[in-house]
């Protein structure tokens, strides 16, 4: 298994090139994420246009306070992720670990608050099949939640590696690319919050 071109022995790469490739790859992947959610956004606008009453009635069931709180929680999480990248770029090991841990902390907060939103609704019998607004609501927030969970597992991996001392000013591509993904999760919520909760 030691010939080049096998799983454990890649061709040698220039680290800067590898970093650039990695980053461009993630930006392109984010483009696919935009269109993945795009289908749901398109459905949202169409259904809101056809059935404005159902959307108004449905939106009034959502808790604006919890939605707004979650927006802030995710923004803070995003902020600490950006600070993690900054810390990695400056080789600040302790700060990197602390910031990644804070990112994870706020991310878990998001999930818990989401739970406080979802569970009472489901208990009241408001389900994805209740009407078309709640279909959209559960599908968008559910898919977003799935992305939060995936993002958290990436950040967990980054944290584990950061504790192992893997990242420094010459090698921070992993943190930056993980960060890109996490910020996209934030950006999507930035759009979901006003569309679902406020208007």
């Amino acid at each position: 298994m030691s010939e080049p071109g096998t799983f454990f022995h890649l061709h040698e790469e220039d680290p800067v090139e590898a970093y650039e490739n990695f980053k461009l790859g993630m930006w392109i992947f984010l483009a696919t994420e935009v269109l993945l959610f795009g289908g749901l956004f398109a459905a949202y606008f169409i259904f809101k246009f056809i059935w404005p009453d159902i959307f108004e009635a449905g939106s009034s069931h959502l808790n604006r306070f919890l939605g707004g709180l979650n927006t802030l929680v995710l923004i803070f999480s995003s902020y600490f992720m950006a600070m993690s990248v900054d810390a990695a770029q400056r080789s600040q090991q302790k700060k990197l670990i602390r910031n990644l841990a804070l990112t994870l902390f706020f991310a878990s907060g998001f999930i818990i608050i989401k739970g406080f939103e979802w569970i009472p609704k489901l208990n009241h019998g408001i389900t994805p099949g209740s009407d078309v607004f709640f279909s959209v609501y559960y599908m968008t927030t559910g898919l977003h939640l799935l992305h939060v969970v995936i993002g958290m597992s990436f950040i967990g991996l980054l944290l584990k590696r950061a504790i192992g001392g893997r990242y420094h000013s010459e090698n921070f591509g992993g943190v930056e690319v993980g960060g890109l993904y996490w910020h996209l999760v934030d950006v999507i919520w930035i759009f979901l919050f006003p569309l679902l909760y406020l208007i």
């Binding site: 009635a57 609704k121 009241h124 408001i126 009407d131 709640f134």
Partner: peptide, 19 residues
Amino acid sequence: PQSYDQKHPEAAHGATTEE
């Protein structure tokens, strides 16, 4: 199609604000 509220008038205000 009917909204959730129209189908469940009795629950219309239950879930609104008091989560």
